[in-house]
Amino acid sequence: MTLRWLACELHTHTIHSDAAHTLEEMAGVARELELDWIALTDHNTVSGWAGKERVEREQGIRILPGLEWTTFYGHMLTLGANVLHKADWRLTGPDDIDEGISGIHQSGGLAGIAHPFRMGSPICTGCFWEFAIGKWRALDYIEVWNGTSPNTKAFNERAYRFWTELLNLGIRLPAVSGRDWHHSQVSKETTIAVTYLGIGGEGALAGQSQHAEHAELSPHVPAADWGEQQLLEAIRQGSASVTLGPLLTLQVRDSGSAESSTAEIGRIYQTGEVVGMQSNGSSRWSVTIEADFEVRKRQWMIAEQELRLRLVGSKGTVAEWGIPAASVTVEACPDLSGELWLRAELYGSMNGQTGLLAFTNCIYVEEQA
């Protein structure tokens, strides 16, 4: 099933906490930035939710209600309309964050770590993550890119490496970006990351979450609705791609083997889904990576150059290609034996800064007898 990719900003603030703009002002700028959704995540308050529906109607942009738990031991982003019903950040100490995450799930929300390695006190009280997590699989996502020009910040590079380490431990944790939006004045040299969420895939529609312990919190929503629950499920599922410009997507197709059933041959797996690999090595897969340079074209620009496109797995770089700064589709049939996960990465220069420009979330590989 073809996914519809929605451009989202998942970490914002208003005058109800420590930002310079109102929700209406921010939504107006978000519309100019060609975003489809923004998540309102003020610090320890939901008073900014008032008037949300009116702002949505007037500005033509959807707003996902949320909250940023702001404590001395870390900041946690919570997304979902009922995140206050059974969860209270004031009662959470350094050793009982698992209980707080459980409360967020009971209320129907998502829990994600914000900027885990950003400098803490006295620069940013509690920004550095110090909570002791007992159940990493209970988390719904991690913010690996935070702020503007996120690919230039050392604390984001550390978060990206940490995400990779968790993946290699078998923890299937989706990754997103967050602008941490406090004001709308940015220079022309500043780059802004966007998280694209894929809506309408088989896993998202069926509520097939990787986090089975709270999959019941994701009821089916009709495809024509594109409501809050589908957005939350896309995040939880890992149907996401993060970028400073072009949209990068990854698919794996079952090319068939002696053990493949007729129904399996030709099946396409999207990010967040699990590919079953035959333990005898007879499985055959084709990988497709697409770089779409037509999305939100007024918001970013990449000079003509050769970009580096990589298919990365748990064992390192699986394949690498040089591509032009233009829309392109790359197909390959790599050996996936021994891999735990796959993701695509795009490298190049943008606004005078060289580094990672975009990455997908993972397609997971699981060995089967």
Results as ranks from 00 to 15, higher is better:
Phe155Lys: 06
Arg54Gln: 15
Lys86Thr: 15
Asp180Cys: 08
Arg267Gly: 06
Glu130Val: 03
Gly316Gln: 12
Thr262His: 11
Ile61Asp: 00
Gln185Asp: 11
Gly316Ser: 14
Ser349Trp: 03
Glu58Gly: 01
Leu217Asn: 14
Leu197Ile: 15
Glu367Cys: 04
Gly112Ser: 01
Gly227Phe: 02
Ser283His: 08
Thr243Trp: 05
Ser282Met: 03
Val194Cys: 03
Ile289Cys: 07
Asn156Gln: 10
Ser184Met: 00
Leu231Lys: 08
Val242Glu: 08
Val83Trp: 04
Gly355Phe: 02
Ala344Phe: 07
Leu247Gly: 09
Leu244Pro: 11
Ile289Glu: 01
Arg253Phe: 11
Ile235Tyr: 09
Gln353Tyr: 06
Leu3Asp: 11
Gly266Leu: 05
Gln185Cys: 08
Arg298Thr: 14
Gln185Trp: 03
Gln229Gly: 10
Ile235Ser: 04
Ile61Phe: 00
His211Leu: 05
Gly80Val: 00
Glu56Asp: 07
Pro122Glu: 02
Ile61Lys: 00
Thr317Ile: 15
Asn156Lys: 08
Glu294Met: 08
Ile323Thr: 10
His13Lys: 10
Leu91Cys: 09
Thr288His: 12
Trp341Asn: 10
Val328Thr: 15
Gln229Asn: 13
Gly170Glu: 14
His85Ile: 08
Trp89Thr: 06
Val287Asn: 05
Val186Ile: 14
Gly134Ile: 01
Ala20Ile: 07
Gln278Ser: 12
Leu357Met: 14
Arg236Asn: 15
Val295Leu: 10
Glu68Gly: 07
Arg253Leu: 11
His220Ser: 10
Arg236Asp: 12
Leu166His: 08
Ala234Val: 09
Ser47Phe: 08
Pro246Asn: 06
Pro94Phe: 07
Pro324Gly: 14
Asn280Trp: 07
Gly355Gln: 08
His75Phe: 05
Met76Phe: 07
Gly126Asp: 03
Arg343Asn: 14
Thr164Met: 10
Asn44Ala: 10
Pro219Gly: 03
Leu40Ser: 02
Ala50Pro: 01
Gly316Glu: 12
Ala114His: 03
Ala111Met: 01
Met301Leu: 12
Ala132Phe: 07
Lys86Asp: 04
Gly316Met: 11
Gly103Asp: 00
Ser337Met: 13
Val252Tyr: 06
Pro122Ala: 02
Pro65Ser: 05
Gly51Asn: 10
Glu58Met: 01
Glu304Val: 10
Ile268Ala: 04
Ala138Glu: 15
Leu10Lys: 04
Gln251Ala: 14
Glu56Asn: 11
Glu32Cys: 00
Trp341Ile: 08
Arg118Glu: 13
Ser107Lys: 02
Gly120Tyr: 01
His182Gly: 07
Gly266Met: 04
Gln305Asp: 13
Ala39Asn: 03
Leu307Val: 12
Thr45Gln: 03
Leu10Met: 13
Ser149Phe: 05
Ile142Leu: 13
Phe359Lys: 12
Gly147Asn: 09
Lys135Gly: 05
Asn156Asp: 12
Ser349Leu: 10
Gln305Glu: 14
Gly276His: 09
Ala369Leu: 07
Asp98Met: 01
Trp321Thr: 13
Trp136Met: 14
Thr125Asp: 04
Thr125Ile: 15
Asn146Tyr: 02
Pro94Gly: 10
Glu339Ala: 02
Met26Pro: 02
Ser107Ala: 15
Leu311His: 09
Trp341Ala: 13
His115Val: 06
Ala344Cys: 12
Ile133Thr: 13
Lys297Cys: 10
His105Ile: 00
Val287Leu: 02
Arg90Pro: 04
His11Cys: 04
Arg284Ser: 12
Asn82Gly: 08
Ile302Val: 15
Leu244Glu: 13
Asp96Glu: 02
Leu232Asp: 03
